[in-house]
């Protein structure tokens, strides 16, 4: 066996063990969502249920308006993702293509907001939204999520990989800067835009603390709140049902990831336009 092959085998063993650790919770959730509560307690290690049942799913669909909850979550996540991407692209473009006084200071201030913990802005946001009479509405949840410094940072980084002369060549043809953004810049950084959008979408999809603060009525619940109903101290101990809700919660982000994984990986590993 050559040293190279040995190295390969070793690497694969490491990668496979990491993969197992990462996948175990998913497999655990999936398998328990098909078990009865008593089976779940008696055969904890059994990943393939001996007596699979759809009981938990039936329970979820009969007791919860799961379609409505999914739509609520989708509504918030789509608004957050679309707006964050739009504002990120526009401000990143301003920070890349324009020269203005105080540009660097402004950029620094915006980027430093990445380091402000959520707990600090949570209360002011709550007060602002409730005074706007938007508490307990989906719009109220979405409203503070329309811009994001991380997005500005990531998009600006990828805009900076476009050679300056390409922008200049477009500027020599084009009378408007917006035209250059639309025709040249956006198409060239499309992978970055897609993956940033997906990350925003998934973050919002999984968000718990902010929706739990804002939303009181069940009809406005998001998936992560619905999930909490089954495992919190006030909720039940029906944890197999909770697993069924988890599995349902995972489906959309998982699907998105599978479709767009090419873009997501390329954004984090390559430097965009060559």
């Amino acid at each position: 066996m050559s040293p190279d092959t040995r190295r390969e085998i070793f690497l694969h063993i490491v990668l496979l063990s990491v993969l197992c650790v990462l996948l175990f919770p998913l497999a655990f959730a999936l398998s328990n969502s098909f078990k009865t509560l008593s089976d779940a307690y008696t055969s904890v290690g059994e990943l393939i249920p001996a007596r699979p049942t759809l009981e938990n799913y039936i329970h979820v669909f009969s007791r919860l308006d799961i379609a409505r909850i999914t739509l609520n979550t989708l509504f918030i996540a789509v608004i957050a993702a679309v707006f964050k991407v739009a504002t990120s692209v526009l401000s990143a473009y301003a920070f890349t293509a324009y020269e203005f006084k105080g540009k660097n200071i402004l950029y620094f201030v915006i980027i430093s907001t990445i380091f402000i913990p959520f707990n600090v802005t949570m209360l002011p946001n709550y007060l602002t939204i409730s005074r706007m009479r938007l508490a307990d509405t989906l719009l109220g949840v979405a409203l503070p999520q329309l811009a994001d410094a991380t997005g500005i940072f990531l998009i600006r980084q990828s805009m900076k990989t476009i050679p300056k002369s390409i922008i200049e060549a477009a500027a020599m043809e084009n009378k408007s800067r917006f035209g250059i953004l639309r025709d040249i810049v956006i198409p060239l950084i499309r992978p970055a835009i897609m993956s940033v959008g997906i990350i925003f979408f998934i973050n919002s999809w999984n968000e718990y603390v902010w929706p739990v603060l804002m939303l009181k009525s069940r009809s406005n619940f998001t998936l992560s709140l619905a999930l909490q109903m089954y495992i919190s101290s006030e909720g039940g101990t029906e944890f197999t049902v909770a697993m069924a809700v988890s599995v349902l919660t995972m489906l959309v982000p998982l699907g998105l990831y599978l479709v767009f994984q090419k873009f997501i990986i390329s954004t984090f590993t390559s430097s965009g336009v060559k």
């Binding site: 050679p163 060549a169 500027a171 043809e173 040249i184 060559k274």
Partner: peptide
């Protein structure tokens, strides 16, 4: 602005739109 000057330019690295 350069778009309004009726000039065309060939760049050293060509600057073709990829």
């Amino acid at each position: 602005r350069s778009g309004e000057r009726n000039v065309s330019m060939v760049f050293q690295n060509y600057a073709l739109f990829p």
